[in-house]
Design a protein around this nucleic acid. Structure first.
Lengths: 229, 229
DNA sequence: GCAAAAGTGTTGATCCTACACCCATGC
DNA sequence: GCATGGGTGTAGGATCAACACTTTTGC
C-alpha cells in the first residue's frame, strides 16, 4: 500500500454549535442568539463559533459556552457532528453540536444581552438558520434518553429544590405528567436525594422540603447507569 | 456585534474512522487494518480516511466502508467526534468515528486482503494507533445500548438464522448468558421474527428452525423503540 | 438405543400503576 | 375555619427470573 502524506488532503472549517437547555419551572427552554455575521445575519441561531487549530473541540465548545453565559463548569456533552455539504450556504463548514444544561438563574444577564440571547420554550421555537432546528430536535431526544438513566436533570435545577420542582422538570422533559405519589416514591427510593431541614414557603402555606442531589451517594451506587425514571 | 467573515478561521483536516463489527458465532469481532501511511505505518488501526471537501461526512464514511469491505448498504451510524489537539502525532486531525455492523460471510475477501484487514475478537484486541482503542470501547458501549432497543442485531447475522445463533449474538454483545427459555419467549413475543419451514441441520440431529427478521412487522410496531432485551 | 441439541411451562418475587385522603399552615 | 398545596399507602396486574424434562433424529 502506498505511502500517503496528510498534506494532500482537504482542510475544512470546523464549527461548534451549542444547544443550551434551561428550565424555569414551566417548561424546557433553549437559549438562542441573534446571529452576528453573514450569511443569515440577524436570524435566530444556536450559539456557535469556529474551532481553532490550537484547541481541542471540547475546549472550543466550553469556550463558546463561557462566552455566552459567563458560566464555567457547566454540564456539556457532545451530541453529533453535522457535515452535509450544503448545510451552510456560506461555505463548507462541518459543525459539531454540543448540548449543555444550565441553571437559568445562575447565568450572566450581561453576557446574554451582549449576544442578543433569548430563552425560547422548546414548543415555540422560532425559525432558525441552517440545520439548527434539527440539532435542537436531536438534542431533545438525547436529553430524554440520558435523563432516564443518569442524574443530569439536577443540572437544570437550583442546588436545592423541592420534589415538586423536580417532578415538574421530568414532566417538561418528557412532555407528560406523572403521578405524584409514584414519582416521589421512586425518586426517593434511589437514595440519591438528601432532604434538608429547610422548607420552601413561597408557593404554599405548609411549605415543601428542599432536597439536594447527593453526588457522593450516587457515585457509590453508579454501577454504570441507575434507572432514574 | 461585528460582521465576521468565515475566511479568517482555521481549516482543519477531517478524518473518518470506522469501527466495523462482525459476529462469527463465537464472539463479537472488530475489523482492523494495517495502517498504510506514516506516522505509525504498519500498526493496527481502524479503517479510516480523510473527508473530502465535496462530500458529506456520512458519504465519506460510506465510501471508506465500501473501499474496505466491498459491501454497499451496510448498517452504519455516527458514533462520536474525536478532536483532542494531540490525538494524531502526524498533525491536527479531527476524526469522526462511525460504527458499522456487517455480516461477515458477505464481505469481500479480496478487498479485505488488499488492506491487510483482519478480524479481532473484541476481548483480544491488539495495540492500536492513536485513540482508536477508545473509539472501539465507546462503539461497544453504544452497540450495547442500541441493541437493547432497536432491532439492529440482525445486521450481524445471516438473513436466516436460528434462535440459538440469535441468542449467541446477544450473549456476545452483552458478555453474559441468558436462559434459553426466557430468551426464546421474549424474542418471539415481540412478533418481529418469522419462522421458516426450513431447518438448519449442521449442528444437531434434530435440526433447528430458521427465522428471518420481519422488517414490515417491526415498522408497524415501531412507536419509537421496542424493548428488545 | 444412545448421544446431542431443540423445544417447551410454571411458579414466586418483584415492579409498576392506578387511585384518595389527611396534614400543616397562613390568611 | 377554610383554602392551598404537601405529604403519604395499598391492592391488583404485569413482568421477570429461576428452574428441568421431553422430543427428534443420526449414528
Amino acid at each position: 500500500m502506498a505511502r500517503i502524506d496528510y498534506k494532500h488532503h482537504d482542510k475544512i472549517l470546523l464549527a461548534v454549535d451549542c444547544i443550551i437547555f434551561g428550565f424555569d419551572g414551566s417548561g424546557l427552554k433553549a437559549l438562542l442568539v441573534k446571529r452576528g455575521l453573514e450569511p443569515e445575519m440577524g436570524k435566530w441561531s444556536l450559539m456557535g463559533g469556529f474551532a481553532n487549530k490550537e484547541e481541542g473541540i471540547d475546549q472550543a465548545a466550553a469556550r463558546i459556552l463561557v462566552q455566552l453565559t459567563g458560566m464555567d463548569k457547566i454540564y456539556m456533552e457532545q451530541l453529533h457532528c453535522f457535515g452535509d455539504v450544503d448545510r451552510d450556504p456560506g461555505g463548507r463548514v462541518v459543525s459539531i453540536a454540543y448540548f449543555a444544561l444550565i441553571k437559568i438563574e445562575e447565568s450572566n444577564g450581561e453576557t446574554l444581552d451582549l449576544h442578543n440571547a433569548k430563552w425560547f420554550d422548546l414548543k415555540k421555537l422560532p425559525t432558525m438558520i441552517f440545520d439548527h432546528k434539527q440539532m435542537v430536535r436531536l438534542a431533545k431526544e438525547r436529553l430524554q434518553q440520558k435523563v432516564a438513566n443518569h442524574p443530569i436533570g439536577f443540572e437544570l435545577l437550583p442546588n436545592k429544590f423541592t420534589l415538586q420542582q423536580l417532578q415538574g422538570l421530568y414532566e417538561a422533559v418528557y412532555e407528560t405528567s406523572f403521578d405524584k405519589r409514584n414519582f416521589t416514591r421512586k425518586i426517593l427510593s434511589l437514595g440519591i436525594l438528601q432532604r434538608l431541614d429547610e422548607k420552601e414557603k413561597e408557593s404554599s402555606k405548609k411549605g415543601a422540603f428542599y432536597y439536594v442531589f447527593d453526588k457522593k451517594k450516587y457515585k457509590q451506587l453508579e454501577s454504570e447507569g441507575i434507572k432514574m425514571i
